[in-house]
Design a protein around this nucleic acid. Structure first.
Lengths: 208, 208
DNA sequence: GTCTATATCGGGATAGAC
DNA sequence: GTCTATCCCGATATAGAC
């Protein structure tokens, strides 16, 4: 199933990712993970001892994947508008290729919000620093004195929602796979434009 | 647990809603539903025969709840900007009181996208009509000749995402319950303003 | 490390008394 | 309609041979 150069442990983890991402914790079966990895069920227990442990490993991996790039972009030296463009462009591509990931993460956070903290520290994520950085750039580059929190959540929502709503979009609005790809592609320009326009509007009202 | 005037069947359904909404299909237990309703486990089977049936009932109820009001607002006689304000205001309130609903729906759609169609018909939801309506109003009232689809998804994302990301927002950014309520309250004005500003920006570029 | 066999338990579902 | 008792399967987990 997987490249046979990988160690057994790696093959199991990769298999576990595929299964957990699609089925969630409760829906996933140890047997299915074993099958997917092409090994015996007992081997999964041998390497990870129980279901919770392997889920934890999968969840941390997913969370880290999403957060690392976010940090990289928002703490870079780019001007603010470029950060928005980079962020949207990267996440639309990444998420549409891994469309199960955001829902998997959000479900996981609902089930075990307590373990978030340690993940944050592992990933060196400081929300305060990030918001301060956004506030600073909005002030200096866009002349905006507004709370960046809503803006930040808006950016996330505009990037992430269309991906987790994929079945809604595709079934309700009847988009083919090709049209959906096209739709996501369009969002790379539409969404940054939408956000920048919205910010310019604030400027007219509140700016000096 | 529930008002004892309700029939047993209703009490079971209400209990099932609470359990399924929080735990999802795989995480929910027939025993827990029975306990929550204050009845014997066999009674749940007596009224609904199996787990799939009762889940179906719960899912349809949730979906209808969300869709009905959306239809009502977008097919009303209000001007477009008022529709946006009404929509955001209603959904922010409703969803923050039922914060488990959107994730429950999205998960359900991922698991069984096939059964969406019949739900749409039951709810008299016609996506084409809705988009046509939005397009017409954007043209006539805002002088915008742009594809309304992205706008529509943007509105949904800005309304829904902050609710499903509740544990992310609350844990990562360390908001207390009071601060979270405040945050949602602010969005009732911030988000419509954000959207209207964005639309005005389009006007400057593309409008006549 | 990898497999087979098995222990153990929980959960969905049914039978049948009242 | 409501309950008790029970069936039966599937899933996690472990023991132990190789």
């Amino acid at each position: 199933m997987e490249n046979s150069t990988a160690t057994t442990e790696e093959r199991i983890l990769e298999a576990a990712k595929r299964v957990f991402h699609c089925k969630g914790y409760d829906g996933a079966r140890m047997q299915e993970i074993a099958d997917e990895a092409g090994v015996n069920k007992s081997l999964v227990h041998y390497y990870y001892r129980n279901k919770d442990n392997i889920f934890q490993a999968v969840f941390e991996d997913a969370f880290t994947q999403l957060i690392t790039k976010l940090n990289e972009i928002f703490f870079s030296e780019l001007p603010f508008t470029s950060k928005i463009e980079s962020f949207i462009s990267y996440y639309v591509t990444f998420l549409s290729k891994n469309s199960y990931l955001p829902l998997f993460i959000l479900n996981g956070l609902h089930e075990k919000p307590d373990q978030i903290k340690s993940l944050l520290e592992k990933n060196h994520l400081s929300p305060e620093r990030l918001l301060a950085q956004v506030r600073k750039q909005m002030r200096e580059e866009l002349n905006l004195e507004i709370d960046p929190f809503h803006i930040y959540i808006n950016i996330l929502g505009l990037s992430i929602f269309p991906v987790i709503a994929k079945p809604l979009i595709q079934t309700i609005f009847g988009l083919s796979n090709g049209e959906l790809t096209q739709f996501y592609e369009e969002r790379k320009t539409v969404v940054p434009e939408f956000i920048i326009n919205a910010l310019k509007g604030y400027k007219n009202v509140h700016g000096k």
